[in-house]
Amino acid sequence: MTHSVLVVDDEPNIVLSLEFLMKQANYDVRVARDGEAALAEIEQAPPDLVLLDAMLPKRDGFDVCQAIRADPALNGVRIIMLTAKGREVEREKGLALGADDYITKPFSTRDVLERVKDFLGEPDEA
């Protein structure tokens, strides 16, 4: 089964890089550039994993995370939060709100891939 990944970030270049990585790993990739778009996408079709930036326009990543976790139907969605803010408190907040993992930027692409694979299992070879 193909797993789907939702990439949420307002920086186009970062979206581009993550999109490329996920595609390369044979995951189904969708993108959103702000919090509201992200929620819309999730509502439409819940992904298996969300790569969620903390700083987003319209609704920030913490809100989105909280919203996902508030819905028991979305319990199976894995959330990895990304942030460029280096503070411990952000990490604590994210994990407290229900994120499954937290990565700080700049991240290692291999690291991101590994974590995604951890959660989702090896993708089927296309």
Binding site: E11, S17, A84, G86, T104, K105, F107, T109
Partner: peptide
């Protein structure tokens, strides 16, 4: 924290794409 955020953002792109280029 804002500056840190602002600096990390381009850095992320730089790193990611450099890695992508390197790995592929």
């Amino acid at each position: 924290s804002t500056v840190s955020h602002e600096l990390r953002t381009p850095l992320t792109s730089i790193r990611s794409f450099s890695e992508i280029l390197f790995d592929n």
